[in-house]
Computed example of a mutant assay.
Amino acid sequence: MELAGLERAFGAYRALDGLDLTVERGEFIALLGPSGCGKSTALNCIAGLLPLTGGAILLDGKPIHELAPEERGFGMVFQSYALFPHMTIRKNVGFGLAMQGVPKAEAEARIDAALDLVRLKSQGDKLPGQLSGGQQQRVAIARAIVIRPPLVLMDEPLSNLDAKLRLEMRAEIRAIHEAIGSTTIYVTHDQDEALSLADRIVVMANGVIRQVGTPEELYERPNHVDVADFMGFRTRILGRVTADGSMVELPGGRLALPAARGLRAGTPVTVSVRPEDFVASKGEARGGDGLTGTVRSIEYRGRAWFGSAALPDGTLVYFRADSTLPQGAPVILAPDPARTLIFEETGR
């Protein structure tokens, strides 16, 4: 499938602004980004639920963006399950087959196979309201795949489940994807979901694609401050390369960072660091050994303490500590230089 210059406007607001993306057959793609970035809009345009205002959608080289949703033959899994409450599980799963006019014997066999795949074969005669949230979502997946679609679209299907169920369902969704061999496009705002499920991740912001890559590429080498933010680099500090080009001047101190080498003196930058790579200790920074901040909050998370501290200009830094630190105490905040990213012009 190819998205070529995809555009979708709502009046003057451009929800999608020229998306270009090629999805390979059998690939699992995650669209990742914050609320309002355009990822669900893109999915609804692919599904045919929203018309384009520009660009094209091609499947096997043929334009499909003017086809009705039912003519595209895609499977869709919604956040809210969207099951028919008055129909049994079997009838819910077989609804698409009935609409396609599939003969009854074949339909029954395909329903059995789909329910078996999602481990719900014994629940076929129940109503949706008699199942748990995780089971209902598996029914929705079975309904999407039973029609043997070339493409399965999933719009944040795990967001209504508790943490334990989300972890279990991740593994099931990936296993189902491998079993049926269909292409999957999966919308999420959860970086862990995207990292664990996808072959490639598409990070979106403000209706455009910021970066496309494998989970490892995006986690280790984000090329934009928005991508870094979604890959766990919570701290974003505005600064400037020093006059001699050897350090970065930041609120609360100076840091010698390898990533700044080669930048011209005076360049405005954004420094991004993950919490686990920003270590806090008692005291005040001296001579470039870190930044001075004030502890705002701290909590214990098993093997370490994690918290936030304010720099002199109010910027929040998210850190790790080996022991608890009192609120309001001055701390030295020292990032791992090798795992600190720098983006010119705040990355925008």
Rank of each mutant, 00 (worst) to 15 (best):
P150F: 03
R174C: 02
A171P: 04
S196K: 14
I185G: 04
R170C: 10
G181S: 08
D155Y: 06
H177E: 01
A175Q: 13
E156D: 12
D190I: 11
L161H: 12
P149D: 09
E172W: 02
V187C: 03
I180K: 03
A194F: 00
H177L: 05
K164D: 04
E168Q: 15
H177K: 03
Q191Y: 04
E193Y: 06
A194N: 07
I147K: 09
E178R: 15
K164M: 10
N160Y: 03
I176S: 02
V187S: 07
V152E: 08
L151K: 09
A144N: 06
A194D: 10
H177Q: 14
A144L: 08
V146T: 13
L197K: 11
R166Y: 05
V187Y: 01
P157T: 12
V187M: 03
M154C: 14
D192L: 14
N160R: 11
E156A: 14
S182T: 14
I185F: 02
V146S: 03
I145G: 06
I145W: 02
P157W: 00
H177A: 01
P150R: 15
M169W: 02
A198E: 03
P157I: 06
G181H: 06
L153W: 01
D190T: 12
H177T: 10
S159A: 15
I176V: 15
T183Y: 07
H189I: 03
R166I: 11
R200F: 03
V146P: 01
I145H: 04
A175T: 00
D199A: 09
E178S: 09
A163L: 15
P149T: 11
Y186Q: 08
N160T: 05
V187N: 02
S182Q: 05
L165D: 05
V152F: 02
L165Q: 05
Y186S: 04
L165F: 06
L197P: 04
A198R: 04
A175R: 15
L161P: 08
R148S: 15
A198F: 05
Q191L: 07
L158Y: 06
A179W: 01
R200H: 12
E168C: 01
L161E: 04
I185Q: 08
A142I: 14
V187Q: 00
A171V: 15
L167H: 11
P157G: 04
R148F: 00
L165S: 06
A179L: 01
S196G: 09
M154F: 04
R166Q: 11
I173N: 02
V146Q: 09
A140S: 12
I147R: 14
R170T: 12
A140V: 13
S159L: 09
I147L: 09
K164F: 14
L195I: 15
I185R: 12
I180N: 00
D190L: 09
R170V: 10
S159D: 04
T188E: 09
D155C: 07
E156F: 07
S196M: 15
H177Y: 06
A175N: 01
T183W: 05
R148D: 09
L195V: 15
T188H: 09
E178I: 04
I176Q: 02
Q191H: 13
R148N: 11
I176E: 00
I185L: 10
L161S: 13
T188W: 00
A140C: 12
A179Y: 02
I185H: 02
Q191P: 08
T183Q: 11
L197H: 08
H177G: 07
Y186M: 10
D199F: 12
G181M: 07
I173R: 03
I180A: 01
R166M: 11
S159T: 13
D155E: 10
A140N: 05
D190G: 12
L153D: 06
H189K: 13
